[in-house]
Simulated scan of single mutants.
Amino acid sequence: MAYKDYYETLGVPRSASEGEIKSAYRKLAKQYHPDKNPGDDKSAERFKEIGEAYAVLNDAEKRKLYDTYGHAGEVPPGAYGGPGGVPGGADFGGFDPSQFSDFFQGLFGGRGGGARSGFSGFGGGQVSLEDLLGGSSGGIGGGRRFVQNVEGELQVSLQEAYQGSDETIQVEGRRITVHIPAGTRDGARLRLSGQGPGGGDVLLTVRVLEDARFELDGDDVTVSVDVPVYTAALGGPVRVETLKGPVQLNVPAGTSGGRRLRLKGQGWPRKGGGHGDLYARLTLTLPASLSDQEKELYRQLAELRK
């Protein structure tokens, strides 16, 4: 009985480790994925063969049966769970590689964007095959369903990360609410248990978008504040943007440019409770244009300072 050499299909030796098999599969799956080869029947067939090979070689029990019987071309009926034990027609735990393309498309909600525009990896239209295949597999064919952990990125604004927010993403056509805890940092990882394909997990990396107004240093935040020269000289209130919203700050008389004034407890949330501080870095400003009277007053001031 003829059989398919699954090691040859994946381009790995028979002594290949689990990691080597997985790496080879990911590389080939990306290369021959239908989305990268639209209308190419040969690539589609090759993609199916790659999936079949991985379904067997990635499962320790099926691989052992294949090594024992398949290599000799004498696969006993039912050894792989399929009709007649023929690898090409096997059930492989309910996994049908020919459905990969539909699965990928359904998982990421098509190419029209997802419920959350900042979510790349599932509904944001920015997914790459490498992102998907980089997820750790719970075992293709290792059971009666396709179990896959998948990864993606979720973008949130600095204010959303600071205050916490609920974001909606789309996975396999399902809308899922993701809670972003207050004080979430860039690069934080969130796990949505059981929300992936076949009961796998969805692993999210939170990307906090930069805000040109704020500089984050540990738990402290620095913001630049424009102060008119007359306010700096005489003292007075100025408006300061914070992550909670604008507040009023009284600038002491005789303040120089570059001075930093602290607003206690207005910084980033601390893990143990409370907040860091916010520092207002003062920048002295002049009007874009001066009237003749204003120029004369500045000349008088310059004379007084001599």
Rank of each mutant, 00 (worst) to 15 (best):
G164M: 00
Y230P: 03
P197K: 09
I169M: 06
P181L: 10
G257W: 06
Q266A: 15
E153D: 15
R174N: 14
T231F: 12
T242G: 13
A233R: 13
Q148F: 11
V171G: 10
Q248K: 12
A161H: 01
Q195K: 10
R262F: 05
P197E: 11
L261F: 11
T255Q: 06
L249V: 02
V227K: 14
L158M: 06
L203C: 08
R262L: 01
R270E: 14
D219L: 07
G173Y: 09
V223F: 14
L243S: 09
L190Q: 11
G265T: 08
A161P: 01
G218K: 09
T205M: 13
D277E: 11
D211F: 09
D186N: 15
Q248L: 12
L278Q: 01
K264Y: 00
Q170N: 13
A232S: 07
L234S: 14
G194E: 14
L234N: 15
A161G: 05
R262A: 07
S224W: 04
L158Y: 00
P237S: 15
A161E: 02
G267R: 12
R144A: 15
L209H: 05
V229I: 12
D166Y: 04
A233E: 15
L190R: 02
E241W: 06
G200C: 02
V227H: 04
P269D: 08
Y162W: 12
T255C: 13
P252S: 09
Q159A: 05
R239L: 15
L158K: 00
L203E: 10
G274K: 10
T184I: 01
T205H: 14
K271S: 15
G196Q: 07
R239Y: 05
D217L: 03
K264I: 00
V227I: 13
G254Q: 14
T242R: 12
G273M: 01
S193M: 13
T222H: 02
P246C: 13
R175T: 07
W268F: 06
W268A: 00
V202P: 01
D201R: 06
P228M: 08
S224P: 00
L234D: 15
G164F: 04
Q248V: 06
L243T: 10
G152R: 01
A212R: 15
T222M: 03
L278I: 06
G245Q: 12
V229R: 14
L209E: 15
Q163K: 14
A233P: 12
G218E: 02
G173C: 04
G245T: 14
I169D: 01
D186Q: 02
E167N: 00
V156D: 07
V147Y: 04
H275G: 01
S224K: 08
L190W: 00
G258F: 05
D201I: 02
S165M: 08
R281M: 10
G236S: 14
G199W: 13
R213S: 06
Q195E: 13
G183I: 03
T222A: 05
L278A: 11
S256Y: 13
Q170A: 15
P269W: 05
G274T: 04
E210P: 07
T222I: 02
R174V: 08
W268L: 10
V156I: 14
V147A: 04
D166W: 06
I176T: 05
R259L: 09
V150E: 03
N149H: 10
V202R: 04
E160Y: 04
V227E: 02
